[in-house]
Design a protein around this nucleic acid. Structure first.
Lengths: 216, 216
DNA sequence: CCTTCCCGACCGATCGATCGCTCGGTCGGG
DNA sequence: CCCGACCGAGCGATCGATCGGTCGGGAAGG
């Protein structure tokens, strides 16, 4: 019913936030995710979800209480995963605002390139969540946005970034990183890591950060 | 049934692409748009659409052949409107690539700030379109994207822009302009024109264009 | 001028299909 | 022999769409 298994290993100061080798979802949820991607939440029937999971309809209900519960579980996993990775990336970055910007950007792009389906549903099926779950989800999204807000505002206050509109730039930067999930597919010519490198540069230019390539 | 009324006035060389005083949709489509926004296409019932339009269910079917036809009409209007405005903006911009970048950015932001609902549905209900309409819609979207691609690539070739990845930057810039529709509401503190001004500056920084504020 | 008729706009009632979900089971491993 | 995992059949509700109308206003005919 609810999410089982807390975050497995919280090895401090590691760069585990770059590791996407473990599948993020149990098989049933993964099958549901792919079906939601293709038809949307309301456009997906319970029978489709059961078939995608290789189960009968009652078999599916044995594992999840409702169609809504499937969506909630997917969205919670997505937001929790990105949140943990972002926190870990910022912890690794230390106090240098440029490095904080770089690693947070890299984290955002890596996540949206490695898990485009997860990010897509979490971003676009918000309306399909029932009121209580939607509130929780929106709060998590705002909290996530605030990470970038803090970095950009701090960097601007320190005079390291040179944008006249830090709040707008922060939102724009997150938007363009999040947008990766709408078109990137792992079969593309660019690996997630390569793409992240490019976005780090683009983000630096957008916020007006110094462009030296020193290993931050 | 089909879209009536071609573009009203094609006064060449005007900046009519900045004019959002005319309602973009007939009342029935506008009511449908608002309902789709709230519940999504598949989450909206024909009875909700009829009620929103102030009609009975057969009354609604008298004007539109199906629920799908409503969505198609909305999406076609959205894409055609943005396309015409973009063409007009670029025509007014002339040959200067910086000015072309500025006006196209302004056009994108103005559209997504003035018509967030229209843009939101056109961008997010793509999956809900039937195969043939979806193909048309995707072609229109790619054509729209290509406008920015051409500007950024040309500016980079001319050495006026200084981004190392023009294609990625073009996509990122369009993404962040399009993203305006996901959060901007006309009641905000910033007018669409003010927001566009900020995005023009942000876009210039992202592509590495000269930042002089000369009246281009 | 009045009457007739037609047609676009609209609606109450209801169609068959399908929806999310549940009941009462079966079955195999411990 | 019990229990978790699973399923065939089917529940009431609601879906998108349709049928056979009503109604008002304007053109046509006398």
């Amino acid at each position: 019913m609810s999410l089982s298994g807390t975050v497995n290993e919280t090895s401090e100061a590691g760069s585990d936030w770059r590791d996407f080798s473990h599948p993020p979802l149990p098989p049933i949820l993964d099958a549901a995710l792919m079906t939601f991607i293709e038809h949307g939440y309301h456009g997906t029937t319970i029978r489709q979800l059961a078939a995608a999971a290789g189960l009968s309809v009652p078999g599916l209900y044995h594992h999840y209480a409702s169609k809504q519960a499937l969506l909630v579980a997917i969205c919670e996993t997505a937001m929790a995963d990105l949140w943990e990775r972002s926190r870990s990336a910022l912890a690794q970055a230390g106090d240098d605002v440029v490095r904080r910007l770089d690693l947070l950007t890299e984290c955002l792009v890596l996540f949206h390139a490695h898990r485009p389906e997860l990010a897509f549903i979490a971003a676009n099926e918000l309306r399909s969540l029932q009121a209580d779950a939607r509130e929780t989800h929106i709060a998590a999204r705002d909290r996530q946005q605030r990470l970038m807000d803090d970095v950009v505002v701090t960097g601007t206050e320190q005079g390291v970034f040179s944008t006249p509109y830090p709040r707008d730039v922060s939102r724009a930067v997150v938007t363009m990183c999040t947008g990766v999930a709408q078109w990137y597919r792992p079969r593309g010519e660019l690996s997630p890591a390569d793409l992240a490198t490019r976005y780090v540069i683009m983000t630096r230019m957008t916020v007006g950060a110094p462009m030296d390539v020193a290993a931050r």
